[in-house]
Design a protein around this nucleic acid. Structure first.
Ligand SMILES: [Mn+2]
Ligand SMILES: [Mn+2]
Ligand SMILES: [Mn+2]
Ligand SMILES: [Mn+2]
Lengths: 218, 218
DNA sequence: AAAATAATTTAGGCTTACCTAAATTATAAC
DNA sequence: GTTATAATTTAGGTAAGCCTAAATTATTTT
């Protein structure tokens, strides 16, 4: 049985591993978890002892297969609870993360799997992130950003890179919601902002926003 | 914000207060929480500082109004989650307590109140215990036990005193479930066991079991 | 390839929540 | 009312998880 802190470190390492071949740095974990590098070092030693990561002094940490599965089981719970909160309890997609951070640590396989069933085995959470299966398996699909599309191309909005409450609320305000189709109409030269077509309406978004929207080409 | 341990101590004091005018003893709390008396003493000092209890050395602890409300808010969450697990996730009434012990510590008023709404504002948990309102108010009704009934009298089964998994499963096996009517037919002299009528069938239960069943006279 | 800088680890502390053993106080038995 | 016993508190430790400051190692600049 892992402690809350151990679980959070594993999750953090998992998320920081996504875009990096080699070890995750002590500092990046510390930043991610709002602690100090020295605290992280201690934890890395412990997780290494428990065979959840491979930790080489001064060279960061990498999840072992066991560590990866363990992280994904926590992420599975996080995402299932997020679905529950949005689908059943009328939470908005920008309100769920904080609570899910707590709920993801509840220990009960039965609870997790019954919740999964109750929600009808959802495949993605409210932010478009995939939900791992009970064994901790997940299909990682390479993601395209809206900013990667060329003029005239259309994409389906399938996820957010930045899932901060601020960005999610911004999307709500512009009526940009998961599943909608977005056509790139034109790009401003001086600031790269994009004119896009969304359902009936057109609007303009900054290149920064566009690079935080995951899409699939249509 | 209270720690998990602080919350558990408050809850324990609340439950142990039910049948006692004066302070709850250090030892009883220690037994209840599976810790040692010396650990409890430390915590009582702290809760006293925080104005959640009145603690007098060598004379146990009593909840303040604030402490009582706080305890009842935790108990509210516990019982709402138990309802959720039974009603929505197909848990049996003997399987919910452990998980609810974890879920009761999740901090989110919105979550609790939305859950309450989702469950249609249940008044009692799966064991017949009343659910406090959002402000931590609860109506305590004096409880009769089946063993208090006279021969020939009938009661409606409304709650369990002993909610151990073993006892709950025993009741399942005998098809004794919340809400059913029980008539006391006869009492054996040598061991006080009761012959009771339940729907169409008759059966015999020990006086010990009978004293763990809460009923209202009909 | 040194020197400067940045990242990381180590050393030494702190707090919470536990524990055991000893001392103290309350309660029960005589 | 003493005395014995039980309950409780105090004293002194431990482990986890955090911290700051100092030392060490890696990386970048010159
Ligand atoms: Mn989240
Ligand atoms: Mn999410
Ligand atoms: Mn319970
Ligand atoms: Mn209950």
């Amino acid at each position: 049985m892992l402690s809350l802190s151990e679980e959070n470190h594993l999750k953090s390492i998992f998320h920081l591993s996504i875009n990096s071949e080699d070890g995750v740095s002590t500092n990046s974990i510390a930043k991610n978890l709002n602690t100090k590098a020295s605290s992280v070092t201690e934890m890395l030693k412990k997780l290494n002892e428990k065979l959840l990561i491979v930790y080489i002094k001064y060279h960061g940490a990498q999840l072992t297969e066991l560590g990866r599965k363990t992280a994904l089981k926590i992420i599975r719970k996080h995402r299932l609870w997020e679905v529950f909160l949005v689908e059943k309890l009328d939470f908005k997609w920008d309100e769920v993360h904080e609570v899910a951070e707590q709920l993801e640590h509840i220990q009960s396989e039965k609870l997790t799997n019954e919740l999964d069933k109750f929600l009808n085995f959802p495949t993605h959470d409210p932010h478009g992130d995939p939900i791992p299966n009970p064994a901790g398996f997940i299909k990682i699909t390479p993601k395209l950003k809206l900013s990667d599309l060329g003029i005239g191309e259309t994409g389906k909005f399938i996820g957010v890179k930045d899932s901060s409450s601020a960005f999610l609320k911004y999307l709500d305000k512009r009526k940009i919601s998961l599943g909608c189709n977005i056509k790139v109409l034109h790009q401003e030269e001086f600031d790269q902002s994009l004119h896009i077509g969304l359902d009936e309406t057109n609007l303009t978004i900054s290149i920064k926003s566009a690079s935080n929207l995951y899409i699939t080409k249509i």
